[in-house]
Amino acid sequence: MLEMRPECERCGTDLPAEASGAFICSFECTYCADCADALDDLCPNCGGELMDRPTRAQDLLEKYPPSTTRKFKG
């Protein structure tokens, strides 16, 4: 199950688990669409490809809550 990190690691923009617009690499580093575009869809941490993160269905958020741990490097 994906960790569903709560914000962009580059700019700190909130990225709710139930909303589209987040991009992740295979290590789940997480970026907003603007930052993913600025990074040419390559993760600066591992060099992996940034892909659209799937959303989590609203009815599953309570049973499987997203992460609350922030990784913003500011």
Rank of each mutant, 00 (worst) to 15 (best):
M1G: 13
L2T: 04
E3Q: 13
P6I: 03
C8Y: 01
C8Q: 04
E9Q: 14
E9W: 02
E9V: 00
E9P: 07
R10A: 15
C11G: 08
G12M: 07
T13Y: 09
L15I: 08
E18K: 08
E18H: 14
A19C: 12
S20F: 06
S20T: 11
A22N: 01
A22P: 00
F23Q: 01
I24T: 15
C25W: 03
S26H: 14
T30E: 02
T30F: 03
Y31Q: 01
A33T: 03
A33H: 09
C35F: 05
A36L: 01
A36V: 02
A36R: 00
D37F: 14
A38V: 01
A38K: 07
L39R: 00
L39W: 02
L39P: 04
D40P: 03
D41V: 02
D41S: 12
L42C: 10
C43W: 00
P44V: 08
P44G: 04
N45I: 06
N45L: 09
N45K: 00
C46Q: 01
C46T: 10
C46L: 00
C46S: 10
G47N: 12
G48Q: 03
G48R: 04
E49K: 12
L50C: 05
M51I: 09
M51E: 08
D52T: 10
D52C: 06
P54E: 11
P54F: 14
R56A: 12
R56G: 06
R56E: 03
R56P: 01
A57W: 05
A57P: 03
A57G: 08
A57L: 09
Q58T: 15
D59N: 15
L61Y: 04
E62V: 10
K63W: 13
K63H: 13
K63D: 11
Y64W: 11
P65I: 08
P66V: 05
S67E: 10
T68Q: 15
K71T: 15
K71M: 12
F72K: 09
F72A: 12
K73W: 14
G74K: 12
G74R: 08
